[in-house]
Design a binder for these strands. Structure first.
Lengths: 164, 164
DNA sequence: TATTGTTATACTCTATAACTATA
DNA sequence: TATAGTTATAGAGTATAACAATA
């Protein structure tokens, strides 16, 4: 069991990442409060800014949100005139979500709020470290659909058939 | 507003961090399920493993958990015999929390579970990038008490007096 | 009076299941 | 029958406020 001389380099990486992410989410929440947007609203807007349009299926997979939760988010955003839902002519079951003009303006504000925030969050990091962090997280983000499509084998963790 | 030729290097860093953190938390949750521990339980155990002992005040500040939530977590852990609460003789209001032998064994299991998990989470990253990430997040973790003690001015975001 | 910890309560967020319409 | 989206509901997680003990 060698319970000696293995004092771990510190906190396990997934734990550090989880805690840092929670901090980031809290800061996002605070910065976005003045826009009456929650972090997930911003996630949707930012995704649409990048992709132009997307079906809800794609949104929930890429943003890692539940289907029913996404409906609520889109209802909010559509109610405020930030996004529009249209039927896909090719498959009338699908809703194609796009960003409205008001939505684009909102995204610009979101960017501004986030830029202000960044210094408060990453003040301890050099510009080089921020670049590293951005690149590393981008790689993780691109390469891991996580729960949705990924998990080829049983590597992602069995659902635990039940203990005692 | 020069809405051209400024295609953002990608997703804003705080958003990336928040999303990656959520992924990490979900993976933690899944890996720890077999131990009937939730991520926050593990956070407490890992913190005590590093510090030996801590008052609850210190725990809630460092782990960014609410006081009432911490009580629940410690009740669970103490009920399972993983931690012990003793009065501080110097200040009988304080509870000093320590890791029991069973708690140390549990922490070892937690480390093992997390190590297994790491490959599934960070498989897209090189060892160098994992080291970078670990170092960067450690710096952030050390230097930013966030909500608790930080936020000197109004930089952390005003609570929004209410719009329309 | 201020502080540490506890309890009780309400609120938010998320996940589950059932339903409609299209394919 | 299967899929995209929606709705209703229950559950977990979190924060807020009042309380007891000690300083």
């Amino acid at each position: 069991m060698t319970s000696a001389a293995t004092p771990d380099p510190g906190i396990p990486l997934p734990v550090l990442l989880s805690q840092a992410g929670e901090r980031a989410r809290e800061f996002l929440q605070r910065q976005l409060a003045s826009s009456r947007l929650r972090p997930r609203h911003a996630h949707v807007l930012l995704f649409l800014e990048r992709t132009g349009a997307a079906g809800q299926q794609e949104l929930l997979e890429r943003l890692n949100v539940d289907a029913s939760a996404l409906v609520g988010l889109l209802n909010d955003l559509e109610g405020d005139g930030m996004v529009e839902r249209r039927r896909d002519p090719a498959d009338r079951r699908r809703h194609i979500v796009t960003l409205s003009e008001h939505g684009r303006a909102a995204v610009a504000e979101v960017h501004a709020s986030i830029d202000e925030m960044s210094d408060a969050l990453f003040g301890a990091l050099s510009d080089t470290d921020r670049d590293h962090l951005h690149r590393i997280l981008s790689v993780m983000s691109s390469g891991a659909p996580a729960t949705a499509t990924g998990c080829p084998g049983r590597l992602c963790g069995p659902p635990d058939p039940g203990g005692s």
